[in-house]
Design a protein around this nucleic acid. Structure first.
Lengths: 243, 243
DNA sequence: CGCTGATTTGACAAGGTTCAAGCGAAGTGG
DNA sequence: CCACTTCGCTTGAACCTTGTCAAATCAGCG
């Protein structure tokens, strides 16, 4: 697949620094579009559909899902406000996107996006930049999936979710998705996810708040557990420093 | 990371169909550049270096490596003739690239590439397209790493290596990299890689040819083992067909 | 208050990792 | 040209993590 799922968080932060007053921001394109609503479990598009539109998430959380030949379900990623989906040069969407919570999207015709970006090259530039960030995320995710223990995976996942929301490191993070979603995202079973969360809670690092929220009690401990590679800006800079 | 490692195989095939006579191909840019040679184990650039150049692989095989904080070594991918490396909008290279065999590269200044592609938008288009393919590969790799047993991983890896080389499905594939490289690429230990290869050979699916080559004896069986998701064009189309 | 589906927990088996040797091929020096 | 060294690969056995199967709990909802 390609570019169908683009996370906007990092880009938005980065863009805020160098270009204070840019003519036309990528997301300003979408602002004029009407908002469309989706209820939980509704699909925005299906894997294999003609890829005719790009969407920007205004509100809510979605999941990008693929079903393998043998029936296994893989969650490619979760989408939250500011993220784009459906961006691609391919003819078809490469996975299904479903709403987890109530969701609000703005839709933009791909054809029209093409012509807009032909006129305003910086749009394509921005998209390209986001794509780069997405590549980075994908590769970090690869590392996360392949090289980490259950505990490291869950810790890393919680940190990732914490980074997106809770602007000022408020320690209670919402987890609108089910345990199965988390399991299919982290490449483990639902039981192991549950056990791991229980274990983390038992050691006082986190505390469950109802079923769809978790309070981070010891942020340092959690970071230490996720350790190796939590895709945190600071750590990345640290690595650069050595060379 | 982003775009630092771009596989060219699929793109080249795809490009051959729609645009027969294109003004200037991406790789034709490089053709004018002198060839640089690297000996095995030599690094082309290091993680953290200023990203000043883009390279095209002319000959040989390389590996893209990252070392995690805790010392674990991760191979992001292998690079072969036709692949690009170092492509990025980021300031620094995000991993180290080392020659595995004797390697020949052509270098292109990133600055110059920028200006060239400003003049000829289709260059950026091509790069973008390659990037999309790369995203696809990365996500498939994610699936490969997270959801598969040792046997499936190795089978998938062999098929991947077979696809790149051995143009006409000649069944002997070269594996210039060491077992450790394979292990660090597939997210398993060297022992498990070895055992799995032994097992596949024992069941007559493959046969080892010296240390750095493997003959595929039963292609169907190997495909069946890799199954679920071998990132084969045919299978992808099959998935599309359903929707 | 009693369903229904999601989550947690337990017992057990399987697959992989780890630690430790044993081999073997490629290269070195005599 | 051959014995020797070395590094990479294979093999073995014990251990550990995670997956599997099954059952108990819990939360939300009618």
């Amino acid at each position: 697949m390609s570019l169908q799922l683009v996370t906007g968080h990092q880009s938005r932060v980065a863009a805020a620094v160098p270009f204070a007053a840019e003519k036309q921001d990528l997301s300003s394109l979408f602002d004029a579009q009407p908002v469309e609503r989706f209820t939980p479990a509704a699909a925005v598009f299906w894997e294999g559909d003609q890829a005719r539109h790009i969407f920007e998430v205004v509100e809510g959380t979605l999941r990008a899902v693929r079903i393998l030949n043998d029936g296994r379900r893989v969650i490619i990623g979760f989408l939250r406000p500011g993220d784009l989906l459906g961006v691609s040069l391919k003819e078809h969407y490469l996975y299904t996107v479903e709403a987890i919570t109530h969701v609000e999207l703005r839709r933009f015709s791909r054809r029209r996006f093409e012509s807009e970006s032909a006129r305003a090259p910086h749009l394509r530039e921005q998209l390209f930049s986001r794509l780069c960030d997405e590549m980075a995320a994908a590769q970090d995710q690869m590392v996360l999936l392949s090289r980490r223990s259950a505990e490291e995976k869950v810790a890393g996942f919680l940190l990732m979710m914490a980074r997106g929301q809770s602007e000022n490191r408020r320690p209670v993070i919402e987890l609108p998705m089910t345990r199965l979603d988390v399991a299919d995202y982290l490449g483990m079973t639902i039981e192991t996810v549950s056990r791991t969360i229980t274990k983390l809670a038992g050691s006082g690092v986190i505390a469950t708040v109802g079923r769809h929220a978790i309070a981070i009690l010891k942020m340092d401990a959690l970071i230490a557990l996720a350790d190796g590679e939590c895709d945190d800006g600071a750590q990345r800079s640290a690595r650069y420093a050595k060379a």
